[in-house]
Computed example of a mutant assay.
Amino acid sequence: MNTSMFGRIAAGLGACAIAMTGVALSSGSATAEEGITYWEDGNSRFNQLVSDTTPKIGDTITITTQFQRKWADEYIYSVKELVPACLRYIEGSAGWGGSPSPSDKVEISSGTPADPQAYVKVNAPNVTSWVVKGLGSGFGNKKSIAMQFYVRESCGTGVSMPTSMHYGGSLGSGSYQDKGPAISVAKPPVTEEPTGTTTPTTTNPDSGNGSLDTGSLGSLFG
């Protein structure tokens, strides 16, 4: 093998090592586990998204519902998001199409022992404010409403908790129980205690009289 060929192979191996390092670094990045479900009802289509379905205690998550229509337009009058009662709605976070909803248009229920689901209901400013356009035989553009929730310590970890959506509009109403992505709060990492035992390395003070063995020194020097 000549020198130039060896150089090309070495350079190729180096580039491969750099590429593999980049892959390892990229794959190590932590990302939220987004959840999405969708369903259709007549000429309406709904998508529901949860920004992180396995959040930790203290995290903030966003729940978004998207509406689509075909053929006729529909005006949305109100949207109710039903969530686990251990989630706390973040005041002022609800909004249609990215525009915040006035506080007097937002109703909040924290749930009851008989009904473990809380809800946030957002009402349109007026009957024509929120319109979902139909597009012939195909679905039109998505219109969305979103809101944020704080994950409280009262949330049980590792338990699947459903989300739901109800709404009312000019073409009727819909109650879609447990249609949204389920949320399961992540369990905190477990730190394992050491299972083995260690032997002390200190010298037992009672094992000898503490005097220097001069006999050994005498034999050493003759």
Rank of each mutant, 00 (worst) to 15 (best):
Y38S: 15
Y38D: 13
Y38P: 00
W39F: 13
W39C: 04
D41Y: 11
G42Q: 11
N43H: 06
S44F: 03
N47H: 05
Q48Y: 00
S51V: 07
D52T: 00
T53D: 08
T53Y: 06
T53N: 08
P55M: 07
I61H: 08
I61T: 11
F67H: 14
K70A: 02
W71H: 07
A72C: 01
A72S: 13
A72M: 09
D73R: 02
D73N: 15
V79Q: 12
V79I: 15
K80Q: 14
E81P: 02
L82Y: 02
A85G: 06
A85N: 13
A85C: 06
C86L: 06
L87K: 03
R88Y: 03
Y89M: 07
I90K: 08
I90S: 01
E91G: 01
S93R: 06
G95V: 14
W96M: 11
G97M: 07
P100E: 03
S101Y: 03
P102Q: 06
K105W: 04
V106R: 01
I108C: 01
S109W: 15
S110N: 10
S110W: 03
G111V: 02
G111W: 05
T112G: 01
P113D: 13
P113R: 10
A114Q: 14
P116D: 02
Q117C: 00
Q117M: 15
Q117A: 12
Y119N: 13
A124K: 15
P125T: 04
N126T: 01
N126Y: 13
V127D: 15
V127I: 01
V127S: 10
S129H: 06
W130I: 12
K133M: 12
L135T: 07
L135P: 09
G136L: 06
G140I: 10
N141K: 13
N141S: 10
K142C: 03
K142I: 04
S144T: 14
I145V: 15
Q148Y: 01
Q148R: 07
Y150F: 13
V151P: 12
E153D: 15
S154V: 10
C155K: 11
C155T: 09
T157M: 05
S160F: 04
M161E: 14
P162L: 12
H166I: 04
Y167E: 09
G168C: 10
G169P: 13
L171D: 15
S173A: 10
G174Y: 05
G174H: 11
K179Q: 07
G180N: 08
G180K: 08
P181G: 08
